[in-house]
């Protein structure tokens, strides 16, 4: 395997279960055990009820396009070969958003707010699986 040139996550105590879930092929979201509010990115306290009790629930992996940008400038050498690439902000059905690359050769001109999106998981290295998205076929 060639050397992996992109940055990799440095998980915190709070986010480790999210990354562990991806390794098992599951998109897990942090959920308040007291009021049920789903939150992302992972953090110690529920902003709705201030509970510190949480559990992790598996997301449907479905959502809608909230906004996007197509990057043309090489901000990082690890991504140079992929330019241009689309970064999508996606509102998941669970109500939280993720920002990640939109794969599958979508054209910027075809994108609209609300376009249906699904999450795809991709193994970056032996240790890391990252979440990406594509248009729902």
């Amino acid at each position: 395997m060639s050397e992996y040139l992109k940055p990799l996550p440095e998980p915190s105590i709070d986010s480790q279960p999210f990354w562990d879930g991806l390794k098992e092929g599951r998109l897990l979201l942090q959920t308040c055990s007291d009021c049920g509010t789903v939150r992302h990115y992972p953090r110690p306290m529920c902003e709705k009820c201030q509970s510190m009790e949480c559990h992790w629930t598996e997301a449907t992996g479905r959502g809608q396009l909230y906004t996007w940008t197509e990057t043309h400038h090489p901000f990082h050498f690890g991504f140079k070969g992929e330019l241009p690439y689309i970064l999508a902000t996606v509102e998941l059905d669970e109500g939280v958003r993720i920002q990640t690359q939109l794969l599958g050769g979508a054209k910027v001109g075809d994108l609209r707010v609300g376009t249906p999106i699904e999450v795809v998981l991709d193994r970056a290295t032996d240790e890391w699986v990252l979440p990406y998205v594509r248009l729902v076929k």
Binding site: L8, Q99, Q101
Partner: peptide
């Protein structure tokens, strides 16, 4: 840095 840099969002 943790969630967006690994998928290409930096600047």
């Amino acid at each position: 840095a943790e969630f967006e840099n690994p998928v290409g969002a930096f600047a």
